[in-house]
């Protein structure tokens, strides 16, 4: 049984048909990436998994349990954590408080979890008492990922961790995502930066206007001519 199994999922914003029958699976231990251009439905897919948007049709199974109709705050307790689009850190809370909020589902804050996050992101250690809203975009991105890790999720949903970051930072972030995965967390990664995402992913899906148009291993998609033309700026 796959950890996450999505079959023919439809999500609407009012009358706008955002997801038109998405199907994808994520196996335990994988990094799976969902790539596509702006507005293709990448974030909507993640928001539907985490319960911020509700699907209208289709199946959404996590470890065999249906997530449909369950509100976001309950899904958070089931082992799914999300680092959302645009970081969405709590701007008037300190870095430490943000990390503590990440552990909200666990009831108590485990100091070893904080130590682990600070080890992954040494930069956050320097900023531990700073208000999150005053930090740079890259630092906020690290905090958003670190905050999601504080819940000790089985499945980590990452929404565009590279957005707006310098190339060096992007590389760092992707190294850390690989590291997190090695430590045992399954990752579903949504990205516009297809080159970087496919390089670290076991498998990838290409989404276009709400539909999955291609699915293959990361390496194969990197070589795929259509992908190279559309998303890697070649041709």
């Amino acid at each position: 049984m796959a950890m996450l199994e999505i079959t023919d999922l439809h999500t609407y914003y009012g009358n706008i048909h955002a997801l038109k029958g998405i199907s994808l699976t994520v196996e335990q231990g994988e990094i799976v990436t969902l790539i596509g251009s702006n507005g293709a439905g990448k974030s909507t897919t993640l928001r539907t998994i985490s319960g911020l948007n509700q699907a209208r049709n289709g199946e959404l199974l996590f470890n065999g349990l249906s997530l449909r109709g369950i509100p976001a705050h309950k899904i958070a307790t089931m082992g799914i954590a999300q680092s959302p689009e645009g970081r969405r850190v709590f701007p008037r809370m300190s870095v430490l408080e943000n990390l503590e909020m990440g552990a909200f589902v666990r009831g108590t804050v485990d100091q070893s979890d904080i130590a682990r996050v600070l080890e992954l992101f040494p930069r956050l250690k320097e900023r531990i008492d700073q208000k999150a809203g005053t930090m740079s975009g890259g630092e906020q991105q690290m905090l958003a990922i670190g905050r999601a890790l504080m819940a000790r999720p089985n499945l980590l949903l990452l929404d565009e961790p590279s957005m707006g970051l310098s190339p060096i930072l992007v590389e760092q972030i992707f190294d850390i995502v690989t590291e997190i995965n090695k430590q045992g967390t399954t990752v579903l990664l949504v990205e516009q930066n297809a080159l970087m995402a496919l390089a670290i992913a076991n498998r990838g899906y290409v989404i276009q206007t709400g539909e999955i148009v291609l699915a293959d291993t990361g390496a194969a998609l990197l070589k795929n001519e259509a992908v190279r033309k559309a998303y890697l700026g070649e041709g």
Binding site: S50, G51, L52, P71, A72, H73, K74, A76, T77, A81, Q82, P84, R88, V89, F90, P91, R92, M93, E97, E100, M101, G102, F104, V105, R147, A148, A151
Partner: peptide, 20 residues
């Protein structure tokens, strides 16, 4: 703290497991 988090970002608070 849940209240402050909800005031600052409702969606993010829900993702933390807070019943908004």
């Amino acid at each position: 703290k849940a209240m402050r988090a909800t005031a600052q970002d409702r969606d993010a608070a829900a993702l933390m497991g807070i019943d908004v």
